[in-house]
Simulated assay, not measured.
Amino acid sequence: MTTPPTASDTMKSIGIVQEGDPVLTQLTRPFELPRDAAEAREVVAALYAAADRATAVHTFSKGIGVAAPQIGVGRRAAIVRPAEGDAIILLNPVVVEESSDTDEQFEGCLSFFDVRGKVPRPRTLRVQHQDFGGQWRTTTFTDGLARLVAHELDHLEGMLYVARMAPGTR
């Protein structure tokens, strides 16, 4: 009798890079926008395709995010699809402010989907990011959306959520 695939096996089978791959722990490179706009568009399209594949195999009631390292690309790009509302493209994002008010919730990650961990995150994040034309904008994210964005931004810094968990937490 064969063992059924784990949730992480399923994510790997749809092209999501799994824990242990060095790309997940490396700092990503920024795009030079607008010069690199064509490459940035290709990466974003690949992120949307990965999110589509993930939502085809799992329901994400709180939304989903995918960062470029999770598809094997070491660039500063991520997308977030909230449970409600439009998808968000984050190119060269930088946190410029975060609230001292935090919230601790369980998180999961497509790159090790078999476990969840309780992670403290700021309830409000202000993030500067660029559009494909190179224009900078600042967006404020709150509560659940701030959590999704913070999780993806960590991926761009080579950090997995387990590094944010309180010491001794399993």
Rank of each mutant, 00 (worst) to 15 (best):
residue 50 A to G: 13
residue 120 P to K: 05
residue 43 V to D: 14
residue 90 L to K: 06
residue 83 A to C: 12
residue 61 S to G: 11
residue 26 Q to H: 14
residue 42 E to N: 15
residue 37 A to P: 14
residue 64 I to W: 09
residue 39 E to C: 06
residue 113 F to S: 00
residue 140 T to C: 06
residue 51 A to T: 13
residue 136 W to V: 10
residue 60 F to C: 02
residue 148 L to F: 01
residue 134 G to R: 08
residue 52 D to S: 04
residue 78 A to V: 00
residue 119 V to R: 04
residue 27 L to T: 15
residue 94 V to Q: 15
residue 44 V to P: 12
residue 98 E to A: 11
residue 59 T to L: 08
residue 70 Q to T: 08
residue 127 V to I: 02
residue 128 Q to C: 10
residue 79 I to D: 08
residue 105 Q to E: 10
residue 120 P to R: 03
residue 109 C to M: 02
residue 90 L to M: 12
residue 81 R to M: 13
residue 40 A to S: 06
residue 48 Y to P: 01
residue 73 V to A: 00
residue 90 L to F: 12
residue 69 P to Q: 00
residue 95 V to Y: 07
residue 69 P to N: 02
residue 37 A to Q: 15
residue 41 R to G: 10
residue 104 E to S: 14
residue 131 D to Y: 07
residue 83 A to F: 08
residue 32 E to H: 15
residue 81 R to N: 06
residue 93 P to E: 08
residue 121 R to G: 04
residue 80 V to P: 10
residue 46 A to M: 12
residue 129 H to I: 03
residue 117 G to R: 05
residue 146 A to N: 05
residue 45 A to M: 09
residue 78 A to P: 10
residue 34 P to I: 13
residue 81 R to I: 07
residue 36 D to L: 13
residue 103 D to C: 15
residue 136 W to E: 10
residue 60 F to T: 02
residue 65 G to C: 01
residue 138 T to A: 13
residue 86 D to R: 07
residue 54 A to D: 03
residue 87 A to P: 09
residue 118 K to G: 06
residue 81 R to Q: 11
residue 69 P to R: 06
residue 122 P to I: 01
residue 30 P to T: 12
residue 85 G to W: 06
residue 137 R to Y: 08
residue 125 L to D: 07
residue 132 F to L: 09
residue 122 P to L: 00
residue 39 E to W: 15
residue 89 I to D: 04
residue 117 G to S: 11
residue 106 F to Y: 14
residue 84 E to P: 00
residue 103 D to T: 15
residue 94 V to G: 10
residue 113 F to G: 03
residue 27 L to C: 13
residue 139 T to D: 08
residue 145 L to N: 12
residue 125 L to A: 01
residue 57 V to D: 04
residue 42 E to A: 11
residue 109 C to Y: 01
residue 46 A to T: 08
residue 141 F to M: 01
residue 56 A to H: 06
residue 54 A to I: 04
residue 45 A to D: 14
residue 95 V to R: 09
residue 27 L to S: 15
residue 139 T to S: 05
residue 81 R to D: 04
residue 101 D to R: 05
residue 35 R to M: 10
residue 145 L to D: 05
residue 135 Q to C: 04
residue 94 V to E: 15
residue 106 F to W: 03
residue 86 D to A: 14
residue 40 A to Y: 07
residue 97 E to V: 07
residue 61 S to Y: 10
residue 148 L to A: 08
